[in-house]
Design a protein around this nucleic acid. Structure first.
Lengths: 127, 127
DNA sequence: GCTTGACCTGGAGCGTACGCAAGGTGGTAT
DNA sequence: ATACCACCTTGCGTACGCTCCAGGTCAAGC
């Protein structure tokens, strides 16, 4: 599969895919004799996985460490698990802060709703 | 209140507070005749509000627009409400993506848990 | 044979949100 | 008086995560 096809399927730019590979966010992709990348389904799975994780705010460095550990096989299972747990906890913490802010925003919006109505009553000519 | 005191109370650096003021994330702070900032409780409220919003990932530019609208008084109520609603929706969307990722991480971790146990059974000498 | 277009590499550039250091001022403690 | 410390401004530096560009290569169609 060419890089362009992966771009479409995963909704990323070619630059981003090459960047991901360069920094080890996805394992090295096989190349044709002339050096052109040839993605497998497995590669695409990595890309989509990384995209999801990135969308949730997981850091590139942590994900790269995680991906890098796969080269060491099953001996790195525990280490990989630790990374996942750490990232999971960080994510849960961020979500907690966001829940509070979301509630505050909702309260604020409700308040604005009222005040907007009041302002309109005071400033719009009566029908 | 001096900038140092606000730093402690809000857990920010002085640089950040000056930056916030410069880009309009908080309204202009009163100065002493010699130019030293003198924060009011109201200022501190702004700072904590902004810190919470920033912690949840709301962008500086959006918050600056929101703060800027206060100078226009009640006539800007509707516009401010729109900003809040937009930011609230963006936040809700991010949280949704994060919820999915959190679930995936939990599943992955559970799977690792099992595989780690299996690996240990295979590699540790029997007692 | 030549053009076209997709791909390659290396490296520079960019937006965001600060952080830091240099050089200067002012109030106060000794 | 002078030393000191907290504060000021200006402007450059940094980390992160891409993004873009120049210059080159390769395979295919005309």
């Amino acid at each position: 599969m060419t890089i362009a096809q992966v771009c479409k399927r995963c909704n990323v730019t070619a630059d981003t895919l090459r960047y991901y590979e360069r920094v080890g966010l996805i394992p090295a992709v096989r190349r044709s004799p002339s050096g052109i990348r040839d993605y497998t389904e497995g590669d695409v799975n990595w890309v989509t996985f990384i995209r999801h994780m990135r969308a949730a705010g997981l850091q590139v460095s942590a994900l790269a460490r995680y991906v890098g550990l796969f080269r060491k096989g099953d001996a790195s299972l525990a280490e990989r698990k630790d990374i996942l747990i750490r990232q999971r906890d960080l994510l849960a913490k961020r979500m907690e802060a966001q829940r509070e802010v979301l509630a505050r925003l909702d309260a604020k919006i409700a308040n604005y709703e009222e005040r907007c109505v009041a302002w309109e009553r005071a400033h719009l000519r009566k029908p």
